[in-house]
Simulated scan of single mutants.
Amino acid sequence: MLTIWGRRTSSNVQALMWCVGELGLDYQRHDAGHRFGGTDTPEFLAMNPNGTVPVLRDGAREPIWETGAILRYLAARHGPEAFWPADPAARAVVDQWAEWAKINVALAFTAPIFWRVVRTSALARDPAAIAAGIAKLDPFLDIAESALRNTAFLAGPNFTLGDIQLGHVLYRYFDIAIDRKPRPALRAYYEALTTRPAYRAHVMISYEELRALN
């Protein structure tokens, strides 16, 4: 049994929960962080000294923190060959897309764009900063668009861990009120993800509780 600490509206927790759902794993999740608090207690800091979510404990094993590390652990322990290949070269292709998506797309979107659009009041919102954030994110989404013109998923024909790291960002990217370049391949990829039950259950979640009061 997996035990997970983290609130449903955390994008990093959503990536983890989507993976758990895709792999069909049993879990118990405890709300932590944001309005739930609990991440600064001695008990939580003993599991993760950073005081961040998610944190995962697999049975009696030591807790694991950092979303990418947790996802790779679950993929290696529970994922089928298509999702996380045993061959090091094939696995590296999946892993490079996962790292690319987290370091470039997720980081370029979450604080520079999503926080400024949703978690900032209308009076304090900075349209120029939002536009600059979109301009910085665009080249990375162009890379995804180019890759997805030729294949169903980032790393090839199969759904992999790389898609978890990119796809969990796309719900909010396509949902919030911002200017977006037309990217038909990326849009079709996103629309296909929205048909996956685990994506709908764990990623397509209201973020209204995060919205700043105007």
Rank of each mutant, 00 (worst) to 15 (best):
F83A: 10
A76V: 08
A98D: 09
S121W: 13
R149H: 15
A90K: 12
L161T: 07
A177S: 15
T195I: 06
R180C: 05
G156I: 05
F83C: 04
T39C: 02
A131G: 04
F109D: 00
P182A: 00
I130C: 10
P127I: 08
N158S: 06
I176D: 11
D138W: 02
R72M: 12
P112I: 10
D95Q: 04
A131C: 07
T160C: 04
F36G: 00
R183S: 06
E208Q: 12
F159I: 04
M204C: 11
D179I: 12
K181S: 03
H202A: 07
T67P: 01
F44W: 05
D163S: 08
L161A: 07
A60W: 05
L16C: 13
S11W: 15
Y73G: 04
A132F: 14
G38Q: 09
A60L: 10
A132T: 12
G68I: 07
P49H: 00
Y27L: 07
M1T: 11
N214G: 12
G6K: 00
A32Y: 06
E43W: 12
D179W: 12
L141A: 06
E22C: 14
L148A: 14
S11Y: 06
A144G: 01
G6V: 09
R35H: 02
A212N: 05
D163M: 02
P88S: 05
A135H: 09
A106E: 11
A101C: 10
G133W: 08
A188E: 13
P139R: 01
